[in-house]
Nucleic acid binder design. Structure first.
Lengths: 192, 192, 192, 192
DNA sequence: TATGAATGAGTCTTCATTCAT
DNA sequence: AATGAATGAAGACTCATTCAT
């Protein structure tokens, strides 16, 4: 009844953890096989090769990340600050549902092994947030920095904070999240 | 009379560029040798092995980064905001003097190949900024977030911005720097 | 009431084609399964393993080749030249009834995977023709060359000609066959 | 002083023997390395990969074979039968100077791993003999068979005879060679 | 009986490292 | 001191074979 075979799922999550922890190159296929409790050859029944595996993993998570952000924003039309709140909430939701996934995305988004398709998926994510910022700048509520700088500040901070949480240098509380959200809003918004 | 032999320097800078661009695992010793215009065996006269090489490279640049930050702060006692300005300036100076070095530090700071010593060097860097933030919190000018969150926001943003610059997604101007500094100050400081 | 199951036949003929075309090692069991329109596991119901498969295939075709040659010769007692004609005809008949089989035999007759039994089957084939040549030498109509040399000339030529035909470098006509038969007879027979 | 490094030669001759004996697919790189008394990695200093190795081996020997045949023919203008004698002598010389090489060429000339260049080299060899046959047909001394059939008979026989010799089914004597030459001439020439 | 998902032994190939020159 | 040829351990990947269904 499962649409995705159970072994494929095991390979996927083992990969995610290992790639996030050690990086693409330092992760060996036998490692993945062992962690997924699967024979080494089995991986190749589901993925053409190691590169296919990272790329599928990357795209799936980037797309889901984008979904989380979009879905928060889609169903309402309050003020811009609320919009930001929903985006932030989407990011938080994603990280909660997919531990390590953000770290994986961060450390692999520049990899030479990424296909054009993977790069485009990431680009779409960036584009979405850019559009949101552009709108904010038009409304005069977002700082007059290049969009890429705004993205870098938002994502750079958020990812680093989450890496700290996942490495237990920081503990995940509502208070922390609220604080970080406010801090980032301050970083991005025009001071009144 | 040169303390550091010229070949060693060549190996060092070739390594930095390659590690920053491709990562530790994807960089081969022959690659380094070729870019440094040196025989492959020569590297081993100056470094015990590949791990020694990254670690020495990492420590040297982390230490220099710390120096840049410290030196800005050391010779004055103006207000706290000025202190932050000096730190930021130190960070900028470092990236200007050592192109790619910040990218290298960022992408390698979680590497499994880092020795305890390297980790401590990085820790010292973090510690220094933490101390600065703690002081600011005592003075009531810095947000009441965990120090590690503050660090994550400062470094995460800054490194991401610099990666964008080095990949030509953003062009380095004084205006940009001023803007980013203000943004980060807003992120870290208590709103009045 | 079929003595040989239909699936086994499918496996046999798929194997023959693939082995002839690509060789034993370059042919994979999944390939055979696919071409035979059979599950990979099914092959193992009929053959112990890949080596069994080639060996059975080899023996069956070598034996049938021998039969073709023998049957031509058996039922008559005309002159020696007629005997040669019947042998040649038998060889032609075999290649017509079993396309690719001669190519398969040729390219696999030295394989390390052949069992003693397979080698003996091939030996028996050779022996039969040797006997025929020995008789001819006794009668003074066949050249005084070592039997193995005569075999080499007859089989070597014939197989090469058939390979050319099967690869479309040569088209199969009665004229060609007559010409080749005459040529080979000239090669083997004592010139008057 | 050696133009070709000694290790490369060792790899070459070990390869030739193994490929001739077992075939391309059944020969492993470690096997070659061991027989050449060389580390496995060393092979890759001299040859890009296994396919490069066979192809270089193939081309070199095919070219040398052609040379042997051509050189015999080049420096004289006696009768056509003498020309054939020189070709045959060239073939014999080649097999003497390069044991196993002819077997290697024979069993690998249809390989899927051969590059276009290798195929062309083989084609050139065939072409040369074809031209010789065509000339003979014009003079009315060679049978009126398709050139490819003549080639198949000449090469098929010769290669098979040599395989027998190298497998000790036949012992190499002048008498044998003279006998085979006469036999093949009878196969190819128009009977008077 | 038939299947094909799963396995892991065995390939080719790369690359950190050594060492004779 | 400097080199780069040589090595072999280790990684990605294939495929004969098994076995639960």
């Amino acid at each position: 009844m499962e649409s995705t075979p159970t072994k494929q799922k095991a390979i996927f999550s083992a990969s995610l953890l290992l790639f996030a922890e050690r990086g693409f190159d330092a992760t060996t296929m036998p490692m993945i096989a062992e962690n997924a409790k699967v024979g080494a050859g089995t991986i190749y029944r589901y993925f053409k090769n190691k590169e296919s595996l990272v790329n599928e993993l990357f795209q799936q998570h980037v797309n889901e990340f984008l979904q989380c952000i979009e879905s928060g924003l889609a169903n309402e039309r309050d003020g811009y600050r609320d919009g930001f709140h929903h985006i932030f909430e989407g990011m938080v939701t994603f990280t909660k549902n997919h531990p390590r996934a953000l770290g994986f995305i961060k450390t692999h988004s520049q990899g030479a092994f990424l296909t054009e398709e993977s790069r485009l998926a990431y680009q779409k994510l960036v584009e979405f947030v850019c559009t949101f910022f552009r709108e904010g700048q038009k409304q005069g509520v977002i700082r007059n920095l290049p969009e890429n700088a705004l993205i870098a500040i938002l994502f750079g901070s958020f990812m680093e904070v989450y890496e700290m949480i996942e490495n237990n240098y920081l503990s995940l509380t509502d208070e922390l999240l609220t604080g970080v959200e406010e801090s980032l809003w301050a970083a991005l918004s025009r001071q009144s």
